[in-house]
Design a protein around this nucleic acid. Sequence first.
DNA 1: TCGTCACCGAACGGAATTCGATCATCAGGT
DNA 2: ACCTGATGATCGAATTCCGTTCGGTGACGA
Lengths: 221, 221
Amino acid sequence: MSSYSSGESATSVATAVLRNEPVQARSTARLTSLLDAAAAVVDGIGFERLTTAMIADRAGSSIGTVYRYFPDRIAVLHALSGRSMTRFAAEGIPAIESPDRANWLEAVEAALQYWVGAFRSEPGFRALRFGDVLDLQPRAGDRTNNGVIAAALVSVLSSRHGLEANDELQFRVEVALELCDSLLARAFAFDRNGDARFTDEALTVARGYLIGAYGNPASDA
Amino acid sequence: MSSYSSGESATSVATAVLRNEPVQARSTARLTSLLDAAAAVVDGIGFERLTTAMIADRAGSSIGTVYRYFPDRIAVLHALSGRSMTRFAAEGIPAIESPDRANWLEAVEAALQYWVGAFRSEPGFRALRFGDVLDLQPRAGDRTNNGVIAAALVSVLSSRHGLEANDELQFRVEVALELCDSLLARAFAFDRNGDARFTDEALTVARGYLIGAYGNPASDA
DNA sequence: TCGTCACCGAACGGAATTCGATCATCAGGT
DNA sequence: ACCTGATGATCGAATTCCGTTCGGTGACGA
């Protein structure tokens, strides 16, 4: 009945949304350019105003090609958020696993810092908020993106820092991410570079929340 | 330079989204029924699937009338969230001002409890999350809904509980609301009645956050 | 050179939005 | 009281915009 997962699921994300898997080289490039285009537009005008025509234009392709790969407009956004998440897992998690992290708190802080960086520089990242905003009528049991990231973090925290990987830890990490996410969204809502007051507070809050639950590992030394 | 406000602004909210202000009695009634219709539909199917035709039908009017008052479909949603906020201020704030609240913490907790109740029973409330979700490209200086509610809370906290109404307090209350909001949204995402694990955690987090900043007033007695 | 992969863009359908015609209310003049 | 012009309010067919489909054409690999 345990709902947390243990590691590799973080990298195996929603590519199932595609209608056709690209086979030839040019088509994988096309797919990439479609997602890049969507990311760029979404950063500029927000996901609600993103039209399929805009994606096609900016990617230098036609509307039909968009629909060769994606079942509908929303699927593009889901794929984009999936790609961001995969990148986050592929690049961020190893950085967090670095032996430099003396304890779980440092690992978490590294993850959050990395996350803020993604808000700043990863196209489409801030506009989608990991895509959870799109899950307007989610079915119970659906995995949220934050849930998947949380699972990856949990696996690092348990395998390298001695925390027990159970539902409670998964829940708390998920909550911490949710908290951070909301403040970061606010931080970047008006300020393209992130209002420092809110980005700082996001890190402080998440930190405080987890320390409240698990104690401060630095002072246990 | 102070950005907090001191009370009455909480009731003067975004009616500026209207194309035409209603003048005669029948038109104010019409406007109300349009918003009621939107709220009912939005609760059922989510704001993305809400069509202008549905609003008109359910309100017993025509599409053209919708557009007499609102510049576009999204504006209806903004107005709806504005009305929810106004109600929250009009009904919730007095409840919070009750002399029963021994200290600021109890006032805040009452506010949050009231908020959870609104998620449960106020039509359209949970679907819109105070409408901030829709603010995809807000202009700098725009007031967020949470910001306005925070201002109202700040005025209660300062006038009745001795906290100094300054930018810092406004900021912290806003952050607390944002934190609560994100967890409540999550709590109600799958469960129409609110997943207790997340609603509880929302209150705990907001409480812990403010106590961390201002101390526990109960233990000062 | 055949079969499949990719791509295109006109055409279709539904939803958003416009706009001029029509009805209702109100003020004030007789 | 009644008329009357002005303005408020409503309507809904027409238009425009956008998501999505589909049949046709070009490109790649065996």
